[in-house]
Amino acid sequence: MIRSFGWESVEFLIRGAGWTLLLSLMTFVIGGFFALIFALLRTLGPRPVRLAIAGFIQLVQATPLLIIVFLAFYGLSFVGLHFPPMVAAGVSLAVYTTAFLADIWRGCIEAIPKQQWEAADALALTRTQQLRYVILPQAFKISLGPTVGFMVQIVKNTSVVALIGFVELTRAGQLLNNMTFQPFHVFLTVAAIYFAICYPLSFLSERLKGNRHARPAH
């Protein structure tokens, strides 16, 4: 049945956008958790661990997200792990996000001058205390801008899982297009919803980065 594009369609898309937001949030929380561990191990871990994590980051960053999604969705079901689209989408997005965020955060930790470690050491703080009270709070401030900036990438990247049939915003747009045959209206609305989610994040990211430059150089 052919429907025409109306308010109902917009409601349908907004429901899709809800899934996009949920998936983005899930990806950020899970990816962020592993990224933090990886970033710390990448900078402070023993040499073999550092190398293994560097290798993981290099490999994931050199593979298209779509291929990681396909590997998780089609590939792993043969190994005996049957992932429904929701889980396959979450796992692949989390792996991808881990690789990029770990790299960003490593940069932030390494941006803290060595003297800060030495000063903390001179104050007789233990290694953990140095990290907890001196290094990480400073690295956190630096990381805010790039991290919020990467959130925009996460939201946009979730669109890729439409191609394995997970019904989020882009997939909802495809379905609606099949029902209404008004691709211009449909995808323009989809783009507008993505913009409404991403633009405030981009704006915030620029503001946070700007503040850093405004502060006196350390």
């Binding site: 783009a191 993505y194 991403c198």
Partner: peptide, 8 residues
């Protein structure tokens, strides 16, 4: 920069 490549 604020919309996905796939939608574009």
């Amino acid at each position: 920069r604020n919309t996905p490549l796939l939608v574009q």
